[in-house]
């Protein structure tokens, strides 16, 4: 499948994201001739372990994440980022997890927004918010290069595109910038050939960045 790079919005120190910024980012995509195609939505769910006896200390992963992706509606992805595990499963795995009663969903967040076509590129702008509320927690931006699946072969093309994109964004003088952190996919057992599991790993990485940004901001305030 075509490879993609996922970016997250890194606000300048002391600033937060707001919905006006998403409008600005969308306008920026349109200003470089991106054609709006429709909506997209991914859901990320944090799971926490359940215990029979709460008093007994137990070590279980704290970053167990389940992800549903719009491009794979019948699949579901589990990630334990700290242990470099990503699993692809039929979406019925969620029903199995419910029946096991060993982990339950703690909180769900959605990545949701509009999708644009621009030549060989597909772009997505999305807000990050808890499923149960409209509270904006972050902004994501995705670039998908449709003709290629090899990450190495497409690196130069994407670097070129990102340069154009960052320049267009810089004209808007928003208090922050988009960051792309490429996970070490090989550590997750993934190859150069891009798959939805790569996307799941990138989403988990973005989520970790957003959480650490919130924690840093709270640390500053406290």
């Amino acid at each position: 499948m075509p490879l993609k790079w996922v970016f997250h919005w890194q606000p300048n120190a002391g600033t937060t994201v707001n919905s006006q910024m998403i409008n600005e980012v969308s306008q920026c995509v349109e200003s470089i001739n991106g054609v709006k195609e429709g909506r997209w939505k991914a859901t990320l769910t944090f799971y926490k372990p359940m215990f029979r006896d709460q008093a007994v200390p137990a070590e279980y992963p704290r970053d167990f994440l389940g992800i549903s992706l719009p491009e794979q509606p019948n699949r579901y992805y589990f990630i334990i980022r700290s242990q470099k595990i990503v699993l692809e499963a039929d979406s019925s795995i969620q029903m199995i997890m419910e029946k096991l009663q060993s982990y339950k969903s703690r909180v769900s967040l959605t990545f949701e927004g509009f999708q644009y076509q621009l030549g060989d590129f597909q772009l997505r702008v999305g807000k990050v918010a808890p499923s149960a509320s409209e509270n904006l927690r972050g902004i994501v931006f995705e670039v998908e290069y449709l003709p290629l699946s090899s990450m190495e072969k497409s690196r130069q093309i994407l670097d070129g595109f990102v340069e154009i994109w960052q320049e267009a964004m810089s004209k808007r003088s928003l208090p922050g910038h988009f960051m792309h952190i490429e996970p070490n996919f090989a550590e997750f057992g993934l190859s150069d050939h891009y798959t939805s599991q790569h996307t799941a790993v990138q989403y988990a990485t973005v989520m970790a960045q957003l959480i650490s940004a919130v924690q840093t901001a709270q640390g500053v305030r406290n």
Binding site: F64, Q83, V86, L87, E88, A89, D90, I93, Q197
Partner: peptide, 14 residues
């Protein structure tokens, strides 16, 4: 549920 081959690692981690 059909799953990828690292399923045992995941369940052991859980």
């Amino acid at each position: 549920s059909k799953v990828s081959k690292n399923v045992l690692r995941l369940f052991y981690a859980l």
